[in-house]
Design a binder for these strands. Structure first.
Lengths: 344, 344
DNA sequence: TATAGTGGTGGAAACGTTTCCATGAATATC
DNA sequence: GATATTCATGGAAACGTTTCCACCACTATA
């Protein structure tokens, strides 16, 4: 085994080699003004020669900033989270910040736990995607003036730094679209009702029905969970109702795809026999056949904006962050059409 | 603004409160054997009471380990990377390790750069997904005995710690399957030929043709890049050949989907007029219609295995890591059938 | 020419841990 | 009962930085 001693090159070695004090090297590295041009140049060349890179631990310890921000996500399975992270990452790259990723695996208890840990010197700021029970820690965080932004969370109660999409409006518009196509029996599959987004989407659906004087039938609302199997089960349940709905609006794309499978397994066609509508516009939505009509959430933009807000706060701790909602957009694809009785 | 002083509770405060020395507290925290049970208990209760959490920077600085491992990925857009990270994350969680995520945005130059930086005290080990030019740094890393594992990279030249899939075998089996269905003109769309995986897949395809005495037609091999537009373009080019292929084997699923679109846009049907085959088995493959027949790479398992290898190395630095290849599996779905002339 | 100001630099403290060494008490061995 | 061994603990050094303070050698100002 060729176990060489790792040639740990520290700031001290650089200082010796450049014939200056260690403090001067530090000043050069941090672009301090008070350094003579030729000294600076000498130090820089030694740094390059030795391949010196500052130890982040030490830097973080003293300076108490890490140039790293943390992101807490429920899991990594869905393209949904990936898109958000994409946006975050792009923004962070612009500012030379690094990203630390934590997964709660959907265990709500872990969330507060992680938050407590991260705050202790690991990261300068925190992004929480799809927070489960933020009430447990937002109080502490804002009291300590620790920078954080929640992503895709509906502020229940007091407003806090967060970025979301206009869920209510998106669901309203989509439902309206279906009604205008002639649908009057529209099934709805909800998300996990402990998430604000799910509540808002249901609210938008109901509001649109009311506006257009379509009677709301409680039977047509199926309680789902944002996972594919629930979409399947929900569609099955809805199709058993007499008369069955002519359209099904699922609270996210994953469930919409489950619903599609259910429809097909009954020998029915999408959209001829029944229209299917989703929410999110995940990458799969465009490639599924028939392509899924859905409400686009600007996930990447949401991630980017959240990162931007956090960076603002980092640079200027007195900034007060609020809630921002980005508009959603109805993306019409092949999975919907007028109801059969009208189409003919 | 209610800017409270963050009540930084350090190990010193815990020590005072528990009436022991700071060293003792550290021992308790690190589960050292030499601590009296009642002392331990007292310290633990104070820790809980004060909500003390060790500062990672300081811990890392002295102990020179961070309990964090780094993962370097080209980007986050595709489900492909997400699946691998999923596997990595699950394994890491078991060992209480944290994950630091770096994105190169497909810029090869950034890769070596990041590696150099990360090695300096930020992380204990390194995972590199789809390395572009590993030759630039594997030498340095292994000379320093710094733990790392490459994921989905074909060792060009000297073997190094890496996890991959049996690309050659997978492509061979898939091609064989097509041949046995009766196809003799099989188009092939390659990946980026600077990646080992692309080379191996092409090799498997060619080998199968040879085994079954199917003449290899250079016209039928289209140079692609692993991105969807190349799949579309490739299929268009292949369909223009006279006589056209009866099946197209794309080097990954994303290109296969591009190819499907191309076929459809020509008014042809999949699989009746032309069979389409992919590689990877990304989540979309199952939901596309017709569902895509593909070669499954065990991405999650690959991530998990890589993490496991890295952890082994961390625990026992003398371990020598080698290359492991996980088997691929042909997943037969609806996108292939016997060629038309035979089907009838 | 004396004095105040200024820019460049060295020295040292501090950040919050881990870990090694030393110490004294308690137990085991002869 | 004296010595050797073990165990729990305190004290202090070390990790690699940043940053504050002090110093010196200048250059302007009076």
């Amino acid at each position: 085994m060729a176990k060489e001693k790792p040639p740990k090159v520290t700031i001290v070695e650089v200082a010796e080699r450049a014939g200056v004090s260690l403090g001067t090297v530090s000043r050069v590295l941090n672009n301090d003004i008070h350094v003579a041009p030729d000294t600076r140049e000498r130090v820089v060349s030694v740094v390059r020669e030795l391949g010196y890179v500052a130890n982040r631990q030490a830097r973080g310890l003293k300076g108490s900033k890490t140039n790293t921000i943390g992101i807490l996500v429920p899991d990594l399975g869905t393209g949904y989270i990936g898109e958000i992270m994409h946006g975050v990452d792009a923004e962070l790259a612009l500012h030379q910040l690094d990203l630390m990723l934590f997964t709660t695996h959907r265990a709500a208890t872990k969330e507060a736990n992680y938050v407590a840990n991260m705050v202790r010197g690991m990261v300068d700021g925190l992004l929480v995607v799809l927070p489960r029970n933020p009430a447990d820690y937002v109080g502490t965080l804002s009291r300590r003036n620790f920078p954080f932004v929640l992503i895709d969370h509906q502020g229940t109660g007091s407003p806090c730094p967060s970025v979301g999409a206009m869920n209510w409006q998106g669901a309203y518009n989509a439902t309206e679209h279906l009604i205008k196509l002639g649908h009057t029996r529209i099934g709805f599959i909800t998300g996990s009702m402990d998430l604000g987004a799910a509540i808002e989407r249901l609210g938008g659906y109901k509001a649109a029905l009311k506006t257009y004087h379509v009677t709301e039938d409680p039977q047509l609302i199926y309680k789902g969970s944002f996972f594919q199997p629930e979409g399947y089960a929900g569609a099955c349940a809805l199709l058993d109702i007499e008369p069955p709905p002519t359209a099904i609006f699922a609270s996210n794309d994953v469930m919409a795809m489950g619903a599609m499978d259910a429809v097909r397994s009954r020998g029915l066609r999408v959209p001829e026999d029944i229209s299917i509508l989703g929410f999110d516009d995940i990458p799969q939505a465009a490639v599924v056949r028939p392509a899924l009509t859905t409400v686009r959430q600007p996930l990447r933009e949401m991630g980017g904006l959240a990162a931007q807000m956090l960076i603002d706060k980092l640079k200027n701790p007195t900034t007060e962050l609020g809630r921002t909602e980005l508009p959603t957009e109805l993306i019409v694809r092949a999975s919907i059409s007028p109801p059969k009785d009208r189409a003919g």
